[in-house]
Design a protein around this nucleic acid. Structure first.
Lengths: 346, 346
DNA sequence: TTGTATGCGTTATCAA
DNA sequence: TTGATAACGCATACAA
């Protein structure tokens, strides 16, 4: 077992100084062709690679990006990571992932772990608990220490930093308009409680679409699910909540759900009640996961372009990292949503 | 903007030596209570945290684990990462993720990037291309350099290291037996080409189950999909391949698919042909993703317990890392599969 | 009780 | 053309 070799060892073996080896390997013209070749051959033979940690310490930058997301078993976040990874790697950066599991404490701890030199900057989406508690001191602190943050999807006005979001309002407004223009008269929405910013915005889009069509909202048609942890149990109660929605409104002929799962379960309930999709009732969901694509009928959704969000976030962060001199100017990039029409709408 | 503070700065401010500060912060009894308190107060005020990179360099260990997976937009791998993250964090380790995208080159490059000091050990699942080319030198090299590897799911006999797998053969044999005992007489299998080790094993389990039931295999019932990248196009061809399967075998009354997607698409084709599930035909898939749970009808599957695999892999790796003195003894842990019965079987 | 020196692996500056 | 030295931030053996 030949351990990783270092400059020092090469130097000793070849009976030259460490700095000679270092220069020779970097093809410095200071070094004679002779020794250069000798050193390079030896290094190649022993498969020398400079130690990243030492480089990080010396350069005071790690060339790695820290990503904190609430949950990884989730198509949207997986896609975002994929996008981040893609551009990060292309530009010579590593990606290190931390999960908050929607918990404030884990979010804080994970950030602390990474902020102490392990990474150059953060890309993150805020956990639900943090959103609920509205305690953002950990973000402010890291930023004030000179470590840039890019937030995506679940962002918050209180924090000044680069952001990548989608136009939730417009996306959902489009979707609901689609249902209305398709002839739906009683469109329900299945959404989250308002502290989840995206849920709130999507609800607002729903309301605006109704308004455009001169329809007045009916609170009976608005189901705000208390979206705690999505456990087995929760799914069952979710299903019964939706059943209740249908019981209260026998005339529902369109449903807009703020995520994929709500839509799928909604379709399930509708089917159980003997409704035909999309003839009797139409559905539109949010997010571009696998569930939508492979459901029966396949679900029309508002695509968030997760991968693109990740790519953009990584670009923004790397830009900041590599031009620290630049004026402090934060931007918010809005990624366009796209209505992907499938078979749950006419 | 107060930059991150270092020992040196604290020392200068307080007019003591660096080592005094260092010791004071670690509560060394060598230091007088007086200065200890003074230093600690100051450190707290400035929110001092030791620099991870410096610690890594000094200790020659980074307390971070490198994970290389073929694909992240995939429930199984997401779950594994989640498991890894969970135990890693609990034991003070970070997790850094690299994606191979099923490509040999990206796998090699990603490993090289991380192996140069960034991490203490690897957890990985081999990319399809690597499996196909059977070129494992990069694994052998990192191991011979003293960096431990734990492989999961897609493993290979040629490499000596800890492994976490499921009993693919037994799992699929169970599944097929279930179909047979449920009365299916013509059970088809939708599987991958043999170079994907798990595909091969699952096919073998299928054959053994048939044998147990004294049925002879019919090559017409075995569809080996050429599972390249799963693109939109590929899905379409996959669907038509499955249609062909049904055309060739009008009597199929049971299908075992080696993954979730194949099963879902199989169900779709069957439904199109007017078959009722599970009355006319029964389905079982492999993997524990969301598709299965929320399909209509919900799909009976062989669960791989991805999170558990991740947890176990992380435990094995950390064990190795923290007891390097131990004898070189590699183990292969087999995680039990579980048949989760839903509505696609009787 | 405090401080000095050394080393982790590298690169850069300056001296030889 | 080569080498010695300092520095990145920290911990520690040893000296004062």
């Amino acid at each position: 077992m030949k351990k990783k070799i270092t400059l020092k060892q090469i130097a000793r073996e070849l009976d030259v100084s460490i700095s000679t080896v270092s220069k020779a390997l970097r093809n410095s013209i200071e070094i004679s062709e002779d020794t250069r070749e000798k050193v390079q051959a030896f290094a190649k033979l022993y498969n020398y690679r400079p130690n990243n940690i030492a480089l990080s310490l010396k350069n005071r930058k790690t060339k790695t990006i820290g990503v904190i997301i609430p949950e990884i078993v989730h198509h949207f976040f997986s896609k975002v990571i994929r996008g981040i990874e893609q551009v990060a790697n292309k530009r010579g950066y590593n990606v290190i992932v931390g999960l908050s599991n929607e918990s404030f404490d884990k979010e804080v701890i994970n950030m602390q772990m990474l902020a102490n030199g392990s990474i150059d900057g953060f890309i993150l989406s805020i956990s639900k608990e943090t959103l609920l508690q509205q305690d953002y001191h950990h973000f402010k602190e890291t930023i004030s220490q000179g470590m840039p943050i890019v937030m995506f999807d679940r962002v918050v006005n209180e924090i000044e930093c680069d952001k990548v979001i989608i136009d939730d309002l417009k996306g959902s407004k489009n979707a609901v308009s689609k249902l209305l223009s398709n002839g739906c008269k009683h469109v329900a929405i299945i959404t989250t409680k308002d502290y989840v910013s995206v849920g709130k915005l999507r609800t607002q889009g729903y309301l605006e679409a109704l308004e455009d069509y001169k329809m007045s909202p009916n609170s009976n048609l608005i189901l705000k699910v208390d979206d705690e942890l999505v456990s087995e149990d929760h799914l069952i109660s979710l299903e019964s909540e939706i059943e209740q929605l249908f019981l209260n409104n026998k005339k529902i002929d369109g449903v807009f759900a703020v995520n994929e799962l709500y839509a799928i379960i909604g379709m399930k309930v509708a089917r159980k009640r003997g409704l035909r999709i999309p003839d009797d009732i139409q559905f539109i969901g949010f997010t571009d996961g696998v569930l939508s694509k492979h459901a029966t009928p396949s679900l029309t959704t508002v695509s968030q372009h997760g991968q693109e969000m990740g790519e953009k976030a990584a670009e923004l962060l790397i830009e900041k990292l590599e031009h620290e001199d630049q004026e402090e100017q934060y931007q918010t990039v809005v990624i366009e949503t796209e209505l992907i029409e499938r078979n749950s709408t006419k």
